[in-house]
């Protein structure tokens, strides 16, 4: 498949010159995120997250399985994501592109490896029955910063999801239907948020948070930081791109800390709102 055409020269120069004056094409400040729009579906664990025109759907479901013998006390979490040509014509079905690899690996690191969900709490009967959580991420449209959007959708879906209550008597496992007993939320250690900063070839241009598609293609390097509101970093990834001074990186980490707190507040509020409107229909 041929490479997608690169942005035209006037487009490029216009973007660079406006960024030099700290102006962004969509009117944001350099360090301002597009406000995420979270829409919850009728089912628990179904979330649509939109950052501007970038849209991602995340969905969680759970089923009982037998755990693998090497980890009899832990539940299983698997993440499925795919960048289909639906999101953007740049994505090709077939061999995963570098970008797709980055996104899947980041999702894996942020949502699974950083111990977001307490895996031991997913164990129902040691060695016999554990919950298997499947998080599916569908990328609907790519207008830049797909990574942050997918991570946000994923983490909110996990927070939103509730698994059916189970009762264990001896070796007997009873799964209660949501209509009988209220389903329980997942026990989570923390809520990490992913923030991406874009750097440009001209060192005088300051980095921008949450790059749009054009900014992302014209950038000379991305710095992705995933952290939670408790000032704990989960992933810092700066794979190549323009070299940065160490102080600059620490400065960006500092900014990310504040942004994560803001984001956390917003997500908590949205979840609360949704839950308030929902309790009635569940029982």
């Amino acid at each position: 498949m041929p490479r997608p055409p690169s942005p035209s020269i006037p487009e490029k120069e216009f973007l660079y010159s406006s960024l030099k004056q700290s102006l962004r094409l969509d009117g944001r400040n350099p360090l301002e995120m597009r406000t995420p729009a979270l829409t919850f579906g009728p089912e628990l664990g179904w979330v649509e997250c939109a950052l501007g025109k970038t849209r991602v759907i995340a969905q969680v479901d759970a089923k009982m399985v037998k755990p693998p013998p090497e980890r009899p006390l832990e539940g299983i979490i698997s993440i499925h994501s795919e960048l289909s040509p639906m999101a953007s014509s740049e994505y090709d079905s077939g061999r995963p592109s570098d970008e797709e690899v980055t996104i899947t690996r980041m999702l894996d690191k942020v949502l699974r490896r950083s111990d977001v969900v307490d895996k031991e709490s997913l164990c129902v009967l040691a060695g016999q029955r554990v919950w298997h959580l499947r998080l599916t991420i569908h990328c609907l449209a790519d207008a830049g910063n797909m990574l942050d959007c997918s991570c946000l959708a994923g983490i909110v879906a996990l927070r939103h999801f509730r698994r059916p209550e189970v009762e264990v008597v001896g070796d007997e496992v009873t799964v209660h239907h949501p209509s009988e007993r209220a389903p329980v939320p997942l026990s989570m250690h923390h809520t990490p948020y992913c923030l991406t900063f874009a750097y440009f070839p001209d060192a005088t241009i300051l980095p921008v948070l949450d790059p749009s598609h054009l900014e992302q293609t014209l950038s000379a390097g991305l710095l992705t930081i995933a952290l939670n509101a408790q000032r704990e970093l989960c992933v810092v990834q700066k794979a190549g791109g323009v070299p940065l001074a160490p102080d600059e990186i620490l400065r960006i980490v500092g900014i990310a800390v504040d942004k994560a707190k803001e984001l956390d507040k917003l997500v908590e509020q949205k979840l609360k709102e949704d839950w308030a409107g929902r309790t009635v229909e569940v029982r």
């Binding site: 000032r231 989960c234 992933v235 700066k238 070299p243 940065l244 001074a245 620490l250 500092g254």
Partner: peptide, 19 residues
């Protein structure tokens, strides 16, 4: 130049420790 080209952190770590 002392500049950094690659940073990869994959496990949970407090910001102050990170620095």
């Amino acid at each position: 130049t002392g500049k950094v080209t690659l940073v990869a952190l994959e496990t949970r770590l407090h910001v102050d420790r990170f620095a």
